[in-house]
């Protein structure tokens, strides 16, 4: 089973530093095989180095792809995560 979803990133620092770490933790927590792509570059969402190397900024569109069990639930979780600003507080 596989699925994809396009999400606009809301964190004011994009996916750097702390939000990148939190996103990778969330991706690992879903149990599904998730990749995240910006433009034509796609990386393993469980790789903090990969995610950081995408250089995702606030307002960028990213494409999430998931394979495995419960992909819709996994994508729901990650979409919710990306739509939240994790640099507040």
């Amino acid at each position: 089973m596989s699925a994809t979803r396009t999400v606009t990133v809301a964190s004011s620092q994009g996916l750097h530093a702390r939000p990148a770490k939190l996103f990778v933790e969330a991706a690992q927590g879903t149990g599904a095989q998730v990749s995240i792509a910006k433009g034509d570059k796609s990386v393993n969402a469980a790789s903090i180095l990969g995610v950081m190397s995408l250089g995702v900024e606030k307002g960028d569109e990213v494409l999430l792809s998931a394979e495995g069990d419960g992909v819709e639930a996994a994508l729901d979780t990650l979409e919710e995560f990306l739509k939240t600003d994790h640099d507040e507080a």
Binding site: R18, A20, K21, E25, S47, I48, L49, G50
Partner: peptide, 16 residues
């Protein structure tokens, strides 16, 4: 703590 936990994740990173 944020910095050190990020380092711990890098140590276990799939690309590495």
């Amino acid at each position: 703590q944020e910095v050190l936990e990020a380092q711990a994740m890098m140590a276990q990173d799939p690309s590495v």
